[in-house]
């Protein structure tokens, strides 16, 4: 039997993981992606909240209803040239007697790219399985719950809402453009309808998945040279022990599943 044993029941594990996940805090990433003809630069912030923990022997921690609150700031570059033909009127010169050659100016209209900002926030819930990973690295023992596989993220109504938000933001930007504004707004709405839910899911998936796919939840972290007592005076130096071995597993004991951490020490 191990020299030191510490154990948590599912209630304790719920509390521990809720705290550990809360400590991870909000994470932000940014990049760019394409949504149909649009190129979007994005910045997204995600915050995780633990759900219900189910301890499954010998080595699985399942979190049901793991929640990710995310807030997305999009900046769409909408190139008007994709729906309006560029206008190019070449120079025309006429030779007028007594006046000489008269030329009209060359006219080129290259439609600009209009930036459409969109902010959108939502959350999703998923069920994820984690495995206990134990490591000794850089003089520290760590036990982490590492996500086993990328869960299937269901966006559901989010996609419809995001499409609507993009359409509304585009309308606000495009409508004031003289003459062609209403036409452009209608054109964008038509494009969004073509992109549809599948397109938005394909856009959101790669952006949001990394918040969960690389998840490592810290459960235990202590230096191998473990301080029992700090130094309190010149004649009372600190007292250390060595954590020779740390292990962790899920055990079924009696009627309960428990997260059990063990350690062997030496002076």
């Amino acid at each position: 039997m191990a020299e030191i044993i510490a154990a948590l029941d599912e209630k304790g594990a719920n509390k521990l993981l809720a705290t550990a996940i809360a400590i991870i805090g909000p994470k932000t990433k940014s990049g760019s992606g394409t949504l149909g003809p649009f190129v979007a630069n994005y910045s997204i912030t995600g915050t995780l909240t633990s759900g219900n923990v189910d301890l499954i022997p010998p080595n699985t921690i399942r979190i049901v209803d793991l929640r990710l609150d995310w807030s997305l700031s999009l900046s769409f570059g909408f190139d008007l040239s994709t729906i309006l033909p560029d206008i190019h009127i070449p120079q025309v010169c006429i030779d007028i007697p007594c006046v000489g050659e008269v030329c009209t100016p060359e006219i080129s209209i290259d439609w600009p790219t209009i930036t459409i900002p969109v902010s959108f926030s939502d959350f999703l819930k998923t069920t994820a399985d984690f495995q206990l990973a134990i490591s000794l690295s850089g003089g520290k023992w760590k036990v982490e719950a590492v996500i086993l596989a990328i869960p299937n993220l269901q966006f559901g109504a989010t996609t419809v809402a995001l499409l609507a938000a993009i359409g509304a933001a585009a309308t606000i930007v495009l409508l004031p453009i003289p003459f062609i504004g209403p036409f452009l707004a209608l054109a964008v709405d038509a494009i969004l309808a073509v992109i549809a839910i599948g397109g938005v899911t394909g856009f959101l998936g790669p952006i949001i998945t990394p918040f969960i796919s690389g998840l490592r939840i810290p459960i235990y972290e202590q230096p191998q040279q473990f301080e029992v007592l700090p130094a309190t005076s010149a004649v009372d130096p600190k007292v250390d022990i060595v954590l020779d071995l740390v292990a962790a597993e899920i055990q079924h004991n009696g009627l309960e599943d428990e997260l059990v951490l063990t350690a062997d020490i030496s002076p």
């Binding site: 044993i5 154990a7 948590l8 022990i241 055990q251 309960e256 030496s266 002076p267």
Partner: peptide
């Protein structure tokens, strides 16, 4: 019987490790 019984957390140390702790204490102090 579970380790935690009616509580949420359980901890225990065997006398071997306890003696290691005492040895560490008296070796350092």
């Amino acid at each position: 019987m579970s380790l935690t019984e009616a509580e949420a957390v359980f901890a225990s140390i065997h006398e071997t490790a306890l003696n290691d702790l005492l040895t560490a204490f008296f070796t350092d102090r």
